[in-house]
Design a binder for these strands. Sequence first.
DNA 1: CGCTGTCTTGAAGCGTTTCAACACAAGTGG
DNA 2: CCACTTGTGTTGAAACGCTTCAAGACAGCG
Lengths: 237, 237
Amino acid sequence: MTMKKNPACSHGGCTAHESGEESCISRVPIFNHLEEGQMEEIMGLIHSASYEKGEVLYRAGEEADTLYILSQGKVRIWRLGENGKEQLLRILEPGDFTGETALFQEALHEDYASAMTEASICTQRREDFRTLLLKYPSISLKVLEEFSSRLGESEKRATRFATERVESRLAHHLLDLLPEGKEEITLPMSRKDLASYLGTTPETISRKLLELEAGGYIRQLSSRKLRILNQEGLLHL
Amino acid sequence: MTMKKNPACSHGGCTAHESGEESCISRVPIFNHLEEGQMEEIMGLIHSASYEKGEVLYRAGEEADTLYILSQGKVRIWRLGENGKEQLLRILEPGDFTGETALFQEALHEDYASAMTEASICTQRREDFRTLLLKYPSISLKVLEEFSSRLGESEKRATRFATERVESRLAHHLLDLLPEGKEEITLPMSRKDLASYLGTTPETISRKLLELEAGGYIRQLSSRKLRILNQEGLLHL
DNA sequence: CGCTGTCTTGAAGCGTTTCAACACAAGTGG
DNA sequence: CCACTTGTGTTGAAACGCTTCAAGACAGCG
């Protein structure tokens, strides 16, 4: 990992690209409602770093005292079950953040984060972030909104694991991936990762996709692309 | 449900009991760091209610605009999977709160809450709560801590469902229930609820407990009481 | 005491995993 | 450009874990 301090996110990933003169921070939902001057104050407390593909941001067991905001690239977040089996929790896109779980309790990471591609990441130390929260309560509300929605997601996921079989979990996941109004999906990950995310095996994913195709619900175009033929049907599997 | 407004929690459940002259609010972690005057301000924004055993506080699909703080009794929080199967998410004890998930997004409840026993509950309207958060940023930090820990819990749960078999989930759950330094557990719920919580069936719970007993890990004293004989062993199941 | 609900036990069936073999695609070096 | 390697995805068959349904045991409560 290569690391720079200030001016905020001045490495390749964070400075102007398609988005003009903006820094990475303005693209982050929890900050983007603030005014000019406040933004600058925040940027002064941000560090930036670049990671190679495959590099690890943090591991379970390490002290969690940093907030990571992804500026460019993709980052994998996963956990190890007590038996050592790995589970994919989520994939960060630019603007997403991680490391928060332990930011508010003096705790250790329970998950792992690693770069799936070359990645530009902005970081902020726990104490700096807490100071900001106390100074600008509106940021807290934004973070609470984000936590709240993530908590909802996570409980929904847990309930799906607990109450639904693989075919149904897969069906619902495909619907989650389907862009509004469209009917074609590009899977964002390999069978192995998809299996890990859905709590099953690549073999079973393969077979269930075949079954869904046989049932007329979907059509597999290539290994990563598929067309949804019967949205309503998938919903009720 | 019976409802009263002010003085805060003055119904039977909230006024002095074992705890002296305190109101329910001072027992709530997110508020209990505040000063005298601030407490009174908060109490002015709190309503109180009593629920009969079995009564529902809210249902999935209803608008979520109220924070519920349990003062006395027990409350069940559960979800319905897409296929209609019910899953127990958690059981609230006095001091715990619920309704938060949707408090920060204009959203609908996705879960159900009902009183397991007669219950005294303090409520606060969304807007009143948001106002408090903006006025006293330290409350936000407390709530963030609570959310953060709950998010961690939930992700751990999801990972357990996804990566571990029933025997292991049960074993870890028993360890979670085991009070520090003790070796006897009183299960806080029926087999049916335990099964729902762990994403299995009552029959399987019964059998797995037998297996754990046969393996020398535990000893069943009665249907709700058991003794842990091999803590280390359970951990690595 | 008998009723009702909770818990247990048994046997059959089903969904999923596992392991092994094979197909296929992408990338590398001769 | 082809052969070779490596990784990813598929397919088949057997084994396993769990659920389901049905019946019986037990406990709590009128």
